[in-house]
Design a binder for these strands. Structure first.
Length: 212
DNA sequence: CGGAAAGCAGAAACTCCCTA
DNA sequence: TAGGGAGTTTCTGCTTTCCG
């Protein structure tokens, strides 16, 4: 791995852009854009701004094109988040896929997992051990707002201190506990933390899990 | 267009820690 | 001290993407 995403495929370089305004956005470029923007957001600093991001593409993509494209993606995400949740709606699924993603998961990988020498790479420390109430609440919030099963996005946007695997595992335990009658809960746990989200999908998700 | 590879998510087993 | 709960790890299957 020598780059952020895309494996250095230089995606858009294959096809000459006829005009700057007609920049061709491939899925890979979108993903790279999301990653770069997320890096800026997570660092709370964006040295170079859109110019720097545009330069990172290594082709003739301009800062204006980058900004416009990100605006489109962000608008779509906002639209989805503001609408009533309907998991059946394919448009929502598509928009969810466009939510900015950062390469933070790599930070949780074992030693030597990064190729090394990647300057500026986002390194978010992933803690282990007991979950705090705040992490638990954020996790539930992520499940409620993004949806069950999108652990990677929940990790990025709601619980950056935990890896997607940790979140999946934690939610697995949570739903198992929720499935238990209260009288059977002999000990209190973090899962009993009073975050009263209605979790329309929580029960469904668990039922779904049980089916599979 | 078909096959191969990679990534992601689900499920379950294992281990450790804490509470009764 | 024993049992239960929580966190981690690993395996498996599915989906998506890339390459010939």
């Amino acid at each position: 791995m020598g780059d952020l995403v895309g494996d250095g495929a230089a995606p858009a370089a294959a096809e000459p852009a006829p005009a700057a305004a007609a920049c061709r956005w491939t899925r890979q470029k979108d993903k790279l854009l999301e990653t770069l923007v997320a890096r800026c957001a997570m660092n709370r600093q964006c040295v170079g701004g859109w110019d720097a991001i545009a330069a990172a593409f290594g082709d003739d993509t301009t800062a204006a094109q980058v900004e416009q494209r990100y605006g489109e993606i962000a608008a779509e995400v906002r639209r989805v988040m503001e609408e009533p949740w309907d998991a059946e709606d394919p448009a929502i699924a598509a928009a969810a896929a466009a939510v900015p993603a950062a390469p933070v998961k790599h930070a949780a990988a074992g030693p030597g997992s990064d190729g090394g020498g990647e300057e500026g790479k986002v390194v978010v420390e992933k803690k282990s051990g007991p979950w705090s109430e705040e992490e638990h609440r954020q996790c539930l919030r992520g499940i409620e707002e993004i949806g069950h099963g999108r652990w990677t996005q929940i990790s990025i946007e709601y619980v950056p201190s935990r890896t997607p695997i940790q979140i999946a595992s934690h939610s697995q335990k949570y739903f198992l506990r929720m499935a238990k009658p209260k009288e059977d809960r002999k000990r209190k746990s973090i899962h009993d933390t009073p975050y009263h989200l209605h979790l329309p999908n929580a029960a469904d998700a668990h039922a779904h899990q049980q089916q599979q």
